[in-house]
Design a protein around this nucleic acid. Structure first.
Length: 582
RNA sequence: UGGUCGGUAGUUCAAUUGGUGGAACGCCAGGUUUUGAUCCUGGAGGUCGUGGGUUCGAUCCCCACCCGACCAACCA
């Protein structure tokens, strides 16, 4: 990409450098793992993947690709209560859609339950784990706080034999949920709260989506995760920042059992947060439950499936993630940045089409009544290889309502009575008169065209200020188009413990039923994204034909001009608001 | 309250491990343009959280303070 004279490797991008890549390179040169690099993406199958997960996916799979290693898609299915096979399938699909066809196999923590169990008995035998009968509330109190020490459980000194017996009976399903747990015996005064005798197993008489009812006890995250990593031969276990306190426990467990591989190491990076969205599973679920959206795959949702339906290219999401890179600082990225990546890709790849969202009829009085003329239109203004298509021109057309003003505001270049504009790929027309309804609304524009301007050029060289899009009234196909605005008006919907639903944007979705599209749109495949010229990028819905979602709009200088003119004090208000928040 | 990580352009983040700082997005201006799009060129914009200290010299080192994020589930 760059033409800079590089030292030796002429054509390769300078390799990215960050704390993770540096670590991996260091491990490679020190031969820590015999040259192996193995990562994993370990979702719990209890919900759908969202944009926040994309970062972790791109990171883990990307790192593996970069260093010639492997990345396992592994389901951390250690809690049967909220998990299901439906989520497993959805996650597999979403990861694949993002472009990371996870090898051949998919891994499950539940496949290691036997191994984990036997390691747990080892720990009991070493006197490093015990069965505790304390109830949850008491146990929480006894754990102490950040500044207060914990107190030992009265069951902490049970004999190995008793522990083994009780643990086996837990496994056999002899006890009710919550009656007992297996705890690691570490240190109730440890400054790291995670190390105060953490729970390893709890009783759950709940069927598991893969193991059915063969287990009555299930391992907790900390007891499971490192062991899963070790079993799979993971070398670099990358998780988000809030797990940094768990790393000590991750290490403790692995150091106290017999590992099949070299010990993996845990590294933490900052999760991806975006402005104007929520990514908490609970909040997302509430959007679905409250009927704000039509489901987890609604095009307004920040889920991977939602973004996909909305028309976001997987490539853009990947580029966005790699642009941001990995850091150890928590941050919130602007949703606009993601959108700019989407716009960039779509600008190159999306075919151009004509569509009128809010139709206004134009009758060209000097154009023959029954004539249908096929005009040539380029599919992409900057890329001839994308070809052309034909669009029909007729006496009656639709143009965008906002492209005509009876009393034009200053700097308005578009159509008004007495002014000439160009119809894209077509003729110059001049508005001559309007027809109004009883309330005085303009419902039709009368116009004349200049037959000499076919193809959009005037032989006398005269110019017009504006080119507008249009669609033939008789030849158009009908469509429904959904426009999207921010789901939450607040930049940080959950900041300071705020309820994001207080800033829910009632105008997040605008459904336009009567859109008119050029006839070639009838052949657009579902899921395809096109640019409606001057309006933005629109994705043909995955399920419903002739339903389009606006992926993202075009940059619009005119709209900006108008906003800054009329919205000056609104901007100030927003600024005030933001300042107050700070 | 204990611990961890931070406070750098309008915004979100980089870099510099002592010699006055970059990118992206946004913004502004000009050029090209049959999308007020794209593309191209240029520009504005930072007392590098506050106060001390060390030093010839600090955004970078030391100390104190202020502010923010995260962590105390039989969730992950």
């Amino acid at each position: 990409m760059s033409t800079e004279p590089s030292t030796s490797e002429s054509d390769t991008e300078p390799e990215a450098s960050d704390f993770l890549r540096d670590q991996i390179r260091a491990d490679l040169t020190a031969d820590t793992y015999a040259g192996r690099v193995k990562t994993r993406f370990p979702p719990e199958p209890n919900g759908y993947l969202h944009i926040g997960h994309a970062m972790s996916i791109c990171l883990n799979f990307g790192l593996a690709q970069e260093f010639g290693g492997e990345c396992n898609l592994r389901f951390d299915d250690t809690n049967p209560e909220a998990e299901s096979d439906e989520f497993v399938q959805a996650i597999i699909e979403d990861v694949a859609w993002l472009g990371f066809e996870s090898s051949d196999t998919v891994y499950f923590a539940s496949d290691y339950f036997d191994q984990m169990y036997s390691w747990a008995e080892d720990l009991i035998n070493k006197g490093l784990a015990y069965v505790d009968d304390t109830d949850p509330e008491t146990m929480s109190e006894m754990r102490g706080g950040f500044t207060t020490p914990g107190t030992n459980s009265p069951f902490r000194e049970r004999s190995v034999e008793e522990n083994l017996d009780l643990f086996r009976r837990m496994k056999a399903g002899e006890f009710a949920d919550g009656e007992r747990v297996l705890r690691a015996k570490i240190d109730m005064n440890h400054e790291n709260m995670q190390m105060r005798d953490p729970v390893m197993y709890r009783i759950r008489n709940t069927p598991h989506h893969r193991t059915g009812d063969t287990w009555a006890i299930y391992p907790n995250y900390d007891w499971a995760h490192g062991q899963e990593d070790a079993i799979e031969g993971v070398t670099h276990s990358i998780c988000t920042l809030e797990f940094d306190n768990n790393r000590e426990l991750y290490d403790w467990y692995q150091n106290n059992i017999d590992l099949p591989f070299e010990k993996p190491n845990q590294y933490e990076f900052a999760r991806l947060n975006l402005t104007h969205v929520v990514t908490s599973k609970r909040k997302l679920a509430q959007l679905v439950e409250d009927g704000v959206v039509n489901g987890w795959d609604d095009a307004a949702m920040p889920t991977i499936r939602g973004l996909r339906r909305r028309g976001y290219p997987a490539k853009s999401i990947r580029e966005f993630c790699s642009h941001i890179g990995v850091a150890k600082t928590n941050s919130v990225r602007e949703i606009e940045l993601l959108e700019s990546f989407v716009r960039n890709d779509l600008n190159d790849d999306a075919v151009r089409r004509s569509g009128v969202l809010r139709p206004l009829k134009v009758v060209i009085e000097n154009y023959p009544e029954d004539q249908v003329e096929m005009l040539n239109a380029a599919n992409h203004p900057n890329d001839d290889s994308m070809g052309t298509r034909q669009v029909p021109f007729t006496r009656e057309l639709y143009i965008e309502q906002e492209d005509f003003e009876e009393v034009p505001p200053p700097k308005y270049f578009r159509l008004t009575v007495g002014r000439e504009v160009r119809l894209r790929y077509g003729y110059f027309i001049t508005a001559t008169d309007v027809v109004k309804d009883a309330e005085g609304n303009v419902i039709e524009v009368r116009a004349t065209y200049d037959p000499e301007t076919g193809g959009g050029q005037a032989p006398d060289g005269r110019k017009v200020k504006s080119t507008i899009h249009w669609v033939s009234a008789s030849e158009a196909v009908d469509a429904t188009v959904v426009l999207y605005d921010r789901l939450f008006t607040a930049e940080h919907p959950s900041a300071d413990g705020a309820d994001p639903f207080d800033s829910l944007n009632p105008q997040a979705k605008e459904i336009l039923e009567g859109a008119k599209l050029e006839p070639s749109m009838a052949e657009i495949t579902q899921g395809e994204v096109v640019q409606f010229e001057r309006l933005g990028y629109f994705a043909h819905d995955l399920d419903t034909p002739m339903l389009f979602h606006r992926t993202v709009g075009l940059r619009d200088e005119w709209a900006r001009l108008q906003k800054s003119k009329g919205g000056n004090n609104q901007n100030q208000q927003n600024q005030k608001k933001n300042n107050q928040k700070k």
